[in-house]
């Protein structure tokens, strides 16, 4: 987590490639939430032997290879080695889903394969199986820069994500931007305010004592300002993610992360 200069270059490059309307350019000194953690927590994330998120990745690997559903195919049966077929996939999600004509996030895409290709019982949002499969697939992109797809069809959804990000909500009347754009690095009570980048999900959170998804994190932030959180799987959460990924473009993926 030392090389800020190279990361900045990658970020600027990504911002240029992303075109003029890219909100990514707003944020110059982009920093992962890991940069704001204690040395102990950073060490826990960096070492696969001590990173509790690796359990989810290993569970995911087993599920990847297990035949499921009416047609008895495993994920591996169609996709082969995840290290090859899934490399870089998480770095470009959410992506446009032709069927629903909407953006779909990585967990949603996995759920679709499970439902339509394996013809197996659907996996519930935030179920350990879905979180593990998502962690396993995302882990194949660890270290790769977040690179949102250049797909014009996503633009209106991303714009809506940005509107949601900037809108004040809840009894405390705060927006995501109030905290994560203007005041990162400050302290909110005993917690250091991160920039709010979705670089490490699913991740192990000490507070949760569990591995959880980005949607769980976003819902926590909404509940924190005493707002009615969007339900797991709600289109708004995918739109927020779409905007957050654009905003984080260039930062390397860390899955599975560790956070306080």
């Amino acid at each position: 987590m030392t090389g800020r200069a190279p990361r900045l270059l990658v970020g600027l490059l990504a911002a240029c490639l992303a075109g003029s309307s890219a909100p990514a350019g707003d944020m110059v000194d982009k920093r992962s939430g890991a940069d704001f953690m204690s040395p102990e927590n950073r060490a826990m994330q960096a070492d696969d032997m001590s990173n509790p998120g690796m359990f989810a990745v290993l569970d995911g690997e087993q599920l990847w290879n297990r035949p499921e559903g009416a047609n008895g195919r495993s994920c591996a049966g169609c996709h082969g080695e995840a290290a090859t077929s899934m490399r870089g996939v998480a770095a470009r999600y959410p992506a446009f889903d032709e069927r629903s004509e909407r953006p779909i996030d990585l967990a949603g895409r996995i759920g679709e394969c499970r439902r339509t290709r394996q013809e197996a019982s659907p996996l519930l949002h935030e179920s350990p199986e879905l979180v593990a499969l998502t962690a396993y697939v995302a882990h194949q992109s660890r270290g790769m820069p977040i690179s949102p797809p250049q797909d014009e069809r996503l633009a209106p959804f991303r714009d809506n994500g940005r509107r949601l990000y900037e809108r004040r909500i809840g009894q405390l009347d705060l927006s995501c931007a109030s905290c994560h754009d203007a005041r990162w690095g400050e302290r909110l009570g005993g917690s250091i305010m991160p920039q709010g980048h979705p670089t490490a999900y699913p991740l192990y959170r000490l507070e949760w004592q569990a591995v959880g998804s980005l949607q769980r994190r976003l819902r926590n932030c909404m509940i924190g300002v005493r707002a009615e959180a969007f339900a797991f799987g709600a289109p708004e959460l995918v739109e927020l993610e779409l905007y957050l990924m654009e905003r984080a473009a260039g930062l390397p993926l860390e899955t599975p992360g560790v956070r306080p």
Binding site: D173, A227, E228, A229
Partner: peptide, 12 residues
């Protein structure tokens, strides 16, 4: 003037 206030905090 507030939006999406959680039910348990609404109108208080």
């Amino acid at each position: 003037g507030l939006a999406r206030v959680a039910a348990s905090f609404r109108d208080r």
